[in-house]
Amino acid sequence: MTIDKKPPPIVIGIPAISKNAAYIDQVGDTNVATVSQTARVAYAEIDQDGGGNRTVLSQNGVGEAYASVSQKGSVNFAQVQQGGSGQNVLYLDQSGNSNWAWANQNSAGEVYNGARMSQSGNYNDMALVQDGSDNLADLKQVGDQNGMSATQVGDGNRLAWTQQGTGLTDLRIVQTGGMEKGGQLSVTQTGVTPGH
């Protein structure tokens, strides 16, 4: 495992949005997508390809929300909650079978919270909480039965976290307060946990 307190720049863009919209494209059997939009400005795009995938997306608050979710495979589950008074961004991509991803973004400032989450493999778990402003997280898991959870509270946190292997332990990273309090991390974990 390697840890660097100076992660590479994380670039997560947000398109210009001015009204609520939702686009859902599903290919396969028994895929379910649920979208709830009560935010002042919300935009959502969901694309599912496979069987038995489920996405639950909620965009509320008085700010702006953007989300793009794509799931390919079978029996993947994604739940996204976006709210607050600022801007939130999310791209989420799951490829494989029986992966689980959950994200809660609550923006409270002028600079948006951004997340890019990706899982490839089977039986992986991923969870992210962003509460504040100008928090960016780039999370990626490749392999099977890996766990990942991160929490960013406050302003200006940065996290680039990659896991590649099988049965890797969830480090449960918590960041508070931005660069001045150590809220800048790059983490890479690889390998196979004994017994997998």
Rank of each mutant, 00 (worst) to 15 (best):
A21T: 15
L136W: 07
G52V: 03
Y66A: 10
L171Q: 14
Q37G: 10
S98G: 01
Q189L: 09
T169F: 04
T166F: 13
M117K: 03
T55I: 15
Q163S: 04
S58A: 13
V75Q: 06
E45R: 15
G165S: 05
S118I: 13
A115E: 01
G28K: 08
M117I: 15
N88T: 14
A160W: 02
N104S: 14
L57Q: 08
E110L: 12
A22E: 11
Q79A: 11
V174A: 14
Q87N: 08
Q141L: 12
A44E: 09
S18M: 09
K5T: 14
V142M: 07
A42Y: 06
V153C: 00
K6W: 00
Q82M: 05
Q163M: 10
G195A: 08
K5F: 10
G96K: 04
P9G: 04
T151I: 10
M148D: 01
Q119D: 04
T151A: 15
S70R: 14
L136C: 03
L159S: 03
S74H: 09
Y123Q: 10
W100R: 14
N99K: 08
M148N: 04
S58R: 11
D131Q: 12
A22G: 01
D29V: 13
V111G: 00
V187M: 11
L136I: 06
G195P: 06
W100V: 08
K140N: 13
T55F: 04
K19G: 13
K5G: 11
A115F: 07
G132T: 12
N99Q: 03
I173D: 09
V89M: 08
G191P: 07
S133G: 10
